[in-house]
Amino acid sequence: MPDAHQGYGLPIGGVLAVDNAVIPYGVGMDIGCRMALSVFDLPAHYLEQRTQELKKLLHNHTRFGNKEVFKNPANDPVLDRPEFKEIPVVKGKREAAINQLGSSGSGNHFVEWGIVDITIEDNDLDLPLGKYMGLLSHSGSRGLGAAIAQHYTKIAMSKCPLPPEARYLAWLGLDSQEGQEYWRAMNLAGDYASACHHDIHRRLSLALGAKPVAKVENHHNFAWKETLPDGREAIVHRKGATPAGQGVLGVIPGSMTAPGFIVRGRGERDSIQSASHGAGRRMSRTQAKQNISEGDLRRHLRDQGIELIGGGLDEAPMAYKDIHQVMAHQRDLVNVLGSFTPRIVRMDAGGGSKSRYGGE
């Protein structure tokens, strides 16, 4: 994908179709990480008029990192799934999953208010052309997904020894007990990540006092059973890449000062019906910390009119590729229906181990 950069096993921004097997590190650590967008029938200038109020809503109704959780986390049917009783590695993570429901990870994860601009009349969202206020979130399956990834990657490496340079591509056959276990656990983690986003958007919608008029959700770091264009069935791994089948909706974010895009997939055969999941890094986290100062970041945010709560130098917009160039490279993969421009951004204050739009 045009946002690709180096990772373990598959690159971030890598897509791989295989026959009747699943590669835990072809999925990645943050299983089912996703974007979720809510569009409100509120004018774009609402953001400028209520900036301090909206900042307070983000501060009061979101939680980030490993230390922040809600005192009274919401309940969700995903927490009653039988996998929590039937799969050993998952069984020990249910309590943490309950506590972390509705929270976001560190590093590249965020919740932000911004301006949605619908630019195509035939947009599948039943929205008239124009600008709206929007809420965009990016987060994944928290500790649950990480535990599943680590556990089954070790099993795959022990059962499928590969040369050192390829060891993270170790696979589990879907006919094996371990492969079936991982598949169920992966899908549980993906559904849990979705539940976290639904809770984030529910809390903030209630606090805002407005119901969304449209929603878009898409995920990466996952494996799907799909039929390829030539008719073969395959397990399609998208690590830091998103589905872009014919008519599939998604959000491809830029950076905290650059727009993201609401897109509709074109079902391109040569990309295995996939598109990028963001802008992708042009500097490593270490390079960003060495080359970007706190003053540089603050000036850039001020010039772009961005209010930032938390975040760090490793997530500075200058560390990311130009989203417009990335989108130009994938004109054959997606059609753009509109954009989302961030205005008020919240991220973990302590930083983290992931890049904003391209983590494992």
Rank of each mutant, 00 (worst) to 15 (best):
D76P: 00
K211L: 08
Q246V: 15
G145H: 10
S158W: 00
Y8C: 08
K154Q: 15
R232K: 15
K211Y: 01
I87E: 13
N187S: 07
R203A: 03
D270A: 11
Y168P: 01
K55D: 08
L188P: 06
P342V: 09
G28T: 05
A170C: 02
G305L: 07
E233Y: 06
G278I: 01
D199M: 10
S271I: 03
L297C: 02
L174K: 06
V69T: 14
R232M: 11
T51G: 07
S355H: 08
P82V: 12
M318G: 04
R264T: 05
R50H: 15
L47G: 01
L42G: 03
N221K: 11
S353G: 14
L47H: 03
R264G: 02
V15I: 14
N72H: 14
A195T: 00
N187V: 06
A316P: 01
L313P: 01
I309S: 08
A258M: 12
W113H: 12
V39N: 03
N291K: 14
D230F: 13
G92R: 12
K67N: 15
P259R: 13
V111K: 05
H300A: 11
E294D: 08
A316G: 00
S106M: 10
K211C: 02
M35E: 12
V326L: 01
Q52T: 15
F261A: 02
Q177T: 13
D303S: 11
F110K: 08
A214V: 13
V236P: 02
G338Q: 05
P229F: 12
F110E: 04
M133R: 05
D270F: 10
L228M: 15
S158Y: 00
P128R: 07
V27Q: 07
A288W: 04
Q325N: 13
S353T: 14
K93Q: 15
G28M: 04
I148Y: 07
H61G: 00
L337C: 07
L206F: 05
L337G: 08
K289E: 13
Y132V: 03
A241H: 09
T286P: 06
A279R: 07
G209M: 02
K56N: 13
N218F: 06
S137D: 04
R269W: 11
G350M: 12
L37H: 04
F70T: 06
G358R: 02
V216C: 05
H5T: 05
G179Q: 06
P82N: 11
L188Q: 05
A279P: 08
A234K: 04
Y132F: 14
M157N: 00
Y152D: 06
D199S: 07
V248N: 07
V111T: 15
G358L: 02
E112P: 09
